[in-house]
Design a protein around this nucleic acid. Structure first.
Lengths: 343, 343
DNA sequence: CTGAAAGCGCTTACAG
DNA sequence: CTGAAAGCGCTTACAG
């Protein structure tokens, strides 16, 4: 996607290639109705193929705009990323255009049209699942772009930025073990995403390294959201032999676990220790404040901007994927395993 | 700020007025060094006064970009507003450029420069305190703009959108009274902001209407953030005669109150009822889920976009300020006052 | 439906 | 330091 600065794609270049005059191409671009369907077709595909972008009078100059694209904006990490991206973009004098691909088919077209016409210098995509047709359309825009991917899709042709999910899973589990816990449950994330798998594997590795068996009853599915965390908590503490600690693959699920525990009259951390993943602001404000594995989302955003910027400047990127370190943040939701008192 | 579409401010118009040639103005605009200081000065002030904006070849056409400006992005309502603004902007085919005025003097200049050069069609400002010099500079940009103001500064020359803070304060208090509470504390917000005053007055009105005295010991200062809420909670429940209910002027402070109560071993809502203000996502995920006064932030964002759009189109706005209704959202942090048992 | 011509807003050498 | 001239990318009547 990071094509080297090719000889300016202008309207007249396209016109020549299509065997028409410049005004005709202009008409197509501006959606005027009076163009023969066949001609329009030919010109449109050429426009796409060559990655035509409006540039006004001043040549190939940068326009000082970066697109920041989310699948949708409800994700609780959205702001964290926006903050990092805004910060880094500001530092290089760029503005960021944030948008969400609202997943109605019709508006995707409209959205692409908008992106195309604002001709920003590059794009940062934040997305757990870009479907492949959309991906192709994005390529047609010929914008240098990088994907921030807190959840890990390591198979793109585009540079990707993630976090060390496996190591995060390991460190949380290690910590719980160091506190004396032996029955440690894991609430997993959306199973189709790589990061879920990596966090789970980190958890398993932690147990195995300590010589503990992985008890499949203590590994419960989740969807990353509050509700599934709540259900997981209900299930786990309905068990004949409940865990003494719960590690969940997202902070949101952990908040659901809190609520399940509260309803059963169990206390964090006196009765049960709990660890989350992400370190969203809500982790700090939970009661008790939540021990969690921090994902450096803002930093990932900053790196993404620096990376697109290098692509815009024609540099090539050495590694197609880089993962930033996660870090265990210990707060008040974890404690040594309760002595041995029957609960 | 909403000037009617005047006869195109072009480089040559400015040149003529300044008594120089167009290339000279162009040089000033592009920050070339080779312009006499006096000339540059004259041209710059003319540029500002006329509200010059780069437009490329296609005339006064709209560019499909709206600036969305925050003081900074840590405010927990930022995303809510972004979501509403993005949604409405998307609907009219605009992109939104999100930025934060990082409050270092130097970068404000830089930021204004960026805003000027991207020539968006209008601006939505979200801000609790714009200092007046910045306000003046913003006016120089000659962009139609509206202020979203969850905290209420009703003295601007710009259309403002807020929420019914007083009514919200009243409804929360009423509800607590209806539950049988008589000792109801209020944790106030930043005292210099109008909204804080309005919420406090709503609380007072609620008590007075019910024939209850306002006990000044139960009105404690806060700053809207978690920490001040925590301190307020510590204070309130260190009192000889603590309240049976606490209403705070923000959800964040309420989460601080939760933590203060938890540390004292008091339960929500069995021992103490608690109400917040804002209805941020964290309210739903608190444990127990928080009863709170909802501020329709996304809706305020949508309305802001519709309003700038009308200004861009040259329409005039009937009311300089509109307040959207707040709404009490009852969840699990409130209950009838505990019978009479000594605690 | 399409092109030749004129025009617009801006910028870039070039000369002084 | 500044302007006259040429040029660039694009669009707008106008004619056919």
């Amino acid at each position: 996607m990071a094509d080297t600065p090719t000889p300016a794609v202008t309207i007249s270049a396209i016109a020549e290639e299509a065997g028409v005059s410049a005004p005709t191409v202009s008409r197509v671009l501006n959606g005027r109705g009076d163009v023969a369907p066949a001609t329009r077709e030919r010109i449109e595909s050429l426009l796409r193929a060559r990655g035509y972008r409006r540039r006004g009078s001043r040549g190939g100059e940068m326009v000082g705009l970066l697109d920041l694209v989310f699948n949708d904006l409800d994700s609780p990490w959205a702001v964290e990323i926006i903050r990092g991206v805004e910060d880094a973009a500001h530092a290089v004098g760029s503005g960021i255009v944030v948008s969400a691909i609202h997943r109605r088919a019709s508006s995707t077209r409209q959205w692409l049209q908008n992106v195309r016409s604002r001709t920003s210098d590059g794009a940062v995509l934040v997305t757990t699942d870009l479907d492949s047709s959309l991906r192709a359309e994005l390529e047609d825009l010929h914008m240098p772009s990088v994907v921030i991917d807190p959840v890990g899709v390591p198979d793109l042709a585009v540079p990707t930025i993630g976090a060390t999910n496996w190591a995060g899973g390991l460190s949380a589990t290690d910590y719980l073990i160091s506190l004396g816990h032996r029955r440690i449950a894991f609430v997993a994330g959306r199973p189709e995403l790589w990061c879920s798998r990596a966090r789970l594997d980190g958890y398993r590795a932690g147990l195995e390294t300590a010589g503990l068996d992985v008890d499949d009853d203590l590994v419960v599915p989740g969807e990353f959201d509050y509700e599934s965390g709540f259900r997981a908590g209900e299930h786990l503490f309905g068990l004949a032999e409940p865990p003494t600690a719960v590690f969940s693959a997202s902070d949101q699920m952990t908040l659901g676990v809190y609520e399940a525990l509260r309803r059963r009259g169990l206390r964090v951390p006196a009765d049960v220790s709990v660890i989350g993943f992400d370190d969203l602001p809500e982790a700090r404000w939970a009661s008790p404040p939540l021990t969690t594995v921090r994902q450096p989302l803002a930093e990932m955003g900053r790196l993404a901007v620096r990376t697109v910027h290098r692509l815009v400047g024609g540099e090539s990127i050495e590694s197609p994927r880089v993962e930033l370190a996660t870090e265990l943040v210990v707060r008040d939701s974890t404690a040594a395993v309760p002595g041995a008192p029957a609960r």
